[in-house]
């Protein structure tokens, strides 16, 4: 067991590097993240466009998967936000598919997991946050602020509740983004730690390899569940903007 061999760098997988050559990462520089974002676009196109190119009444396998995703997200939006929220379905589906494919592609060995970066998930969460807030004021005008004034509570404690409601409203994007990014980052870091053990332990590396297998299975679940959680929370927030609380 060489000292060199035990150098585990679980976080190195998250480093963002320019795709071509070395140097500084400017805002426009194509990076390894850009590459994997591009792959997720390709995968989504393959599923939703190539998979449905036959427009078959009796769907092929790929077409029924596309229809399954469509129906799943559509009914989620309809169930959570109601009929009025259905017009935001394309935005929700964009978010869901992006997160799902970024998560799942991140599980390909040697790949890069875009959604493990808080900057990425915070961008998504802030888009939802500002989108919902603006929609709320557009749809309900000043009445949107009524959601902070809990009329079902006694008048005396309403101001206190209002403060709590407002704080929780502004904490939404934080929890929304950290939940997704943290889960993905932690899972991939753990995988890398066990992989480092496997490289250093010789014959005993059977144990970490088994552990990697188990954690990988868990991570597949996490990848899908976190995409689902992010999407359904988006729908829940959207409901506030679409319907008034009374």
């Amino acid at each position: 067991m060489a000292a060199e061999g035990f150098a585990i760098h679980p976080m190195d997988q998250f480093i963002i590097r320019p795709l071509f050559g070395e140097g500084e990462v400017h805002w426009y520089t194509p990076t390894n993240m850009t590459l994997w974002l591009f792959f997720s676009v390709l995968a989504i196109t393959a599923l939703m466009v190539l998979g449905t190119r036959r427009r078959a009444i009796v769907p092929t396998r790929s077409q029924s998967m596309a229809e399954l995703v469509y129906g799943f997200v559509y009914s989620m939006v309809e169930d959570v936000t109601g009929k009025d929220g259905v017009k935001y379905f394309p935005y929700v589906l964009t978010l869901f598919l992006f997160i799902l494919f970024a998560n799942v592609l991140g599980l390909v060995p040697l790949s890069f997991t875009s959604t493990s970066h808080v900057a990425v998930t915070a961008t998504l969460a802030l888009l939802v946050f500002f989108g919902v807030t603006i929609l709320g004021f557009v749809n309900q005008g000043i009445g949107f602020l009524g959601m902070f004034w809990v009329t079902s509570a006694p008048l005396a404690i309403r101001p206190i509740l209002a403060v709590i409601e407002i704080v929780s409203y502004f904490v939404r994007p934080v929890s929304h983004s950290i939940r997704l990014g943290g889960n993905l980052m932690a899972g991939h870091a753990v995988l890398k730690v066990f992989a480092g053990f496997a490289g250093a332990l010789g014959v005993a590396s059977v144990v970490p390899i088994f552990a990697i297998t188990a954690i990988y299975a868990l991570e597949v679940l996490v990848a899908v569940v976190q995409a689902y959680v992010f999407t359904i929370l988006t729908c829940v927030y959207l409901r506030d903007a679409v319907h008034s609380h009374h």
Partner: peptide, 17 residues
């Protein structure tokens, strides 16, 4: 860089969809 490319990706996915 991340924010720029994520926004580009989302816009592209949105239009494809």
């Amino acid at each position: 860089n991340q924010i720029f490319w994520v926004l580009v990706t989302l816009v592209v996915i949105y239009f494809i969809l």
